[in-house]
Design a binder for these strands. Structure first.
Lengths: 141, 141
DNA sequence: ACAATCTGTTGGGCATCCAAACAATCTTAC
DNA sequence: GTAAGATTGTTTGGATGCCCAACAGATTGT
C-alpha cells in the first residue's frame, strides 16, 4: 500500500521553508556522520582554531548567541578536553584556545565534514554548488 | 571602537553552515513579523488547509516528526481554536480540519509571509530567487 | 574617586523534539 | 471467526538549545 504524498500548498514556493528543509536534511546527515558534536559545536571549534585567544563574548557575538548561552557550551567543550580557558590580560575575560586533543578532533571532524559536504552536494555540479553558496550569501551576508 | 570581525576559517565554504546561517536569518525575520506562531506551526496550518482531514500520523510523517510530537502541537492549535480534530472512519484516527478562525488566521499570516519573503529575498532578482529554490531542491528533494 | 560599562556566570524559564509504553482499533493469517 | 500482529493517538519522562534578569569582579571614562 503506497500512500500518496501530501499536497504542499504554498510551502514549496517559500524560501524560508525550503531553507529549513535543506538545513534539516543537512543536519540529519551531519548528525549521522560527525558523531558526538553538533554542527554548531564543531563550528565553534573552527572559529576558536581560526581565532586563538578569542573571548567568549566575541565568540557569542559572532554566532549570534547570548553570552550566557556560550558558558554552557564552553563548559562542555572544556569538559571534553577540547578547549582551554585562559585568564586574559583584561582579567574579566577568558581567552579560548584549542587543546592538543581539540586540534586532533577538529582535524578528524574536518575529514568527516568533507565527506558530509560531498553527500549533501551530490546532486550539484561544482558550478551549481558555487552558485548556491553565492545566492545564500545574498540572504545572510 | 570598532571590533574586527572574527576569522571564519573553513566555515564560509561549508554548505551546511551557510544553509544554517540563511535559515537562522530567515527565522529571525519571520519571528519578528508573523507574531504568535512559529514557521513550523504556520507550515502545519498550510498543510492541513491543503489536505483537509489529514491524520496526525500522516502529518507527522510529512514533516518528519514523531507522532508523539504532533500531539502537543495539535493540542496547541486546537486550544487556540485554529484546528479541529474529528474522529475518522477508522476510529483510531483523528482527521484534522482548519476552523473558520484557522482559515482567517492563515489568510492573514500568508500576507505577512509574503512581506517576509520579499524582505529575505530583497537582494535577489526574481531569476536568482527561482534559481535558489531550484538549487535548494537538489539538496532536499 | 566614582559612576557607567563590560565579562563571565548563575538560575529560571520556554520551545522543540524523541523514546518507551499503553489502550483502542484495525488488519492479516489461519 | 478468531487470534496474533500492526497502527493510531496519547502520556510520561527526558534531552537539547536558547534567552533573560541579576550579579560580582574588573575596567573605563569623567
Amino acid at each position: 500500500m503506497v500512500k500518496a504524498a501530501l499536497r504542499q500548498g504554498a510551502l514549496p514556493d517559500l524560501l524560508g521553508y525550503r531553507l529549513r528543509l535543506a538545513q534539516q536534511a543537512a543536519f540529519r546527515d551531519f548528525a549521522a556522520s560527525v558523531q558526538g558534536l553538533s554542527p554548531g559545536r564543531i563550528g565553534l571549534l573552527i572559529l576558536i582554531d581560526a581565532n586563538p585567544g578569542v573571548t567568549q563574548s566575541r565568540l557569542a557575538e559572532a554566532v549570534r548567541r547570548d553570552r550566557s548561552t556560550m558558558v554552557g557550551v564552553i563548559d562542555l567543550l572544556e569538559g571534553r578536553g577540547l578547549v582551554e580557558r585562559r585568564r586574559g590580560d583584561d582579567r574579566r575575560t577568558n581567552g579560548l584556545w584549542l587543546t592538543r586533543a581539540g586540534h586532533m578532533l577538529l582535524a578528524r571532524a574536518l575529514r568527516r565534514i568533507a565527506e558530509h559536504e560531498r553527500r549533501i552536494a551530490s546532486r550539484l555540479s561544482p558550478a551549481e554548488r558555487r552558485r548556491l553558496l553565492e545566492l545564500l550569501g545574498k540572504i545572510s551576508p
